[in-house]
């Protein structure tokens, strides 16, 4: 049982994403992958996939696709109003689609990105060990680009667990068990927990205070590479001459115009701007679900706290596939 997806309308920016292509940063290859990696991982686990399988990342305005063959899917992340034919799709549950059903999105309710995992994953060729679409380098995913009307995506073969999940469901039926993806990913508050960056102390005292106190607004020119923020203009005590060096997912850079940029999944591997903050990894999903116009504020935590929160969440995520497997013994 494997199916395919036919794109009727592509939505604003719908791409094939997986867990990205780490291990090639020394060659200048961005890690990329899902902007909200926890959401895609949970969606994959719900349909019995390995956590790194490829699914769809829909942005703000979701696509309209026809599901051909026998397709089991799960949604996680933001809520863009997903419908299977006319019925709302419950998030955080495996759903077996009726043959030929249309998956479409009625409109954004909350968040910025919704992930759709399909049992078996999306079967596009791997490039450097990953199926993630890297738009800037035009590689990975489907021809290195966002989906277009008329595209057809084939699905891979479900795992044994994926088969058991499918057999337990009637067409059109949702699994009786669910995962609280919002709690796992930590959505909700507009507060983003951060560590001080290497050049935080190079800011003027007033800018240091403003950075950790004031609200910032996500600008419309934000993308998968970086979120540009509007807020108080931040100033350094004096200009810094820096040599390019590595940056990370969540590094907050300060270009000369004083408006910070948070580096996201498709960030370059290295950068030469001052790094004033580093977003705690545990809050990256929350940030990935912030849409243009949304407000956020940074709150400082310690490195020890950030890593303890990360490890606690990894433990919760590691229990999820065990629970799903138990349901289908």
């Amino acid at each position: 049982m494997s199916g395919q997806i036919r794109v009727v309308r592509p939505g604003l920016l719908t791409t094939v994403q997986d867990a990205g292509r780490p291990g090639h940063q020394h060659d200048g290859v961005s890690v990329g992958g899902a902007l909200d990696p926890v959401a895609l991982r949970v969606a994959n686990l719900l349909v019995g996939n390995t956590p790194g399988s490829a699914g769809l990342e829909a942005t703000l305005l979701g696509p309209d696709v026809v599901l051909e063959g026998d397709v089991v899917l799960a949604l996680a992340g933001g809520d863009l109003g997903a419908r299977l034919d006319d019925a709302p799709v419950p998030p955080g549950r495996a759903v077996r689609a009726p043959a030929g059903a249309r998956l479409h999105f009625a409109g954004r309710v909350r968040g910025a990105r919704q992930y759709v995992a399909f049992a078996g994953g999306i079967d596009v060729p791997e490039v450097l060990g990953s199926r993630a679409t890297w738009l800037r380098a035009r590689m990975g995913g489907l021809e290195g680009r966002a989906l277009l009307a008329g595209d057809v995506l084939r699905l891979g073969h479900p795992t044994a667990l994926g088969e058991r999940i499918a057999q337990s469901l009637e067409p059109g039926e949702a699994a009786p068990w669910s995962a609280d993806t919002g709690a796992l990913a930590g959505y909700g508050p507009s507060e983003i927990r951060v560590l001080r960056g290497a050049h935080f102390d190079a800011l003027r005292p007033a800018s240091r205070e403003a950075l950790l106190r004031d609200d910032f607004v996500v600008r419309p020119d934000s993308d998968r590479m970086g979120y540009r923020l509007a807020g108080p203009v931040l100033e350094l005590e004096q200009p810094l001459e820096l040599l390019s060096e590595a940056v990370a997912f969540g590094t907050v850079q300060l270009p000369p115009d004083g408006a910070p940029i948070v580096l996201m999944a498709d960030r370059q591997t290295t950068g030469g701007y001052p790094r004033v903050l580093e977003v705690a990894t545990v809050d990256l999903p929350r940030l990935a679900q912030a849409a243009p116009g949304d407000r956020l504020a940074f709150r400082e935590i310690s490195l020890e706290q950030a890593q303890a929160l990360y490890i606690a969440r990894e433990r919760r995520l590691a229990r999820l596939p065990l629970a799903i497997d138990l349901h289908h013994r």
Binding site: T281, E304, I311
Partner: peptide, 26 residues
Amino acid sequence: TVDLVPAFTTLALHYDPARTGSGAPY
């Protein structure tokens, strides 16, 4: 270890804090 990134004067080690063994990861 996840990635090693050499630059002009630095080398970065990207790591998974859940896989660094016992104790505080950093």
